[in-house]
Amino acid sequence: MDVIRLERGQTRTVHDADSVQADWIGSGVAFVVYEARRKRGFVAHVLQTDWEHRGSPTAPPPALEDLKGWLDETGASPSEVRAVVAGGAQPLNAGEDPRLRPGEGLSRAVTTGLRSLGIDHICEDTGGSMGRSLKLNCRNGVVDVVQGQGSSTTHFRLGG
């Protein structure tokens, strides 16, 4: 099965035989929304730059507008889908300086945005000082989030 590569700033819908991977997630955030019953989902890799430049810092990242369109188009029920949010890393000495914590606000904006769409089943792997990659196997709803070039892997099962 070929793995579809999701580039920085991209969104993508996926179907039952697909496997999709977002690499090199730094302070940016990748998220998966998966509907187990129909084995389909929506994946996005959101960058800080795609978000802040929309105006208000409290605005939802634009990928959430695409997600809303996908939910409307497919009729997927927000109460049935499950989500994983990963990313938002920061340097070791992030401290309290907001210049060193861009991922924190972005992670919060993504999870808040998902909840505002009615998606409440959200798993998170965010923060810390390791970049991540995220991979969804759409056939079984397994999401692997790999940190630090394979230093550790977290598995999420969204398939029921």
Binding site: R8, W24, G28, L92, N93, G131
Partner: peptide, 17 residues
Amino acid sequence: CKALGIGLGAENFTIQV
């Protein structure tokens, strides 16, 4: 670049800014 994920490969995000 690290924040954007450009070149996380070697030292990843283990930097002090």
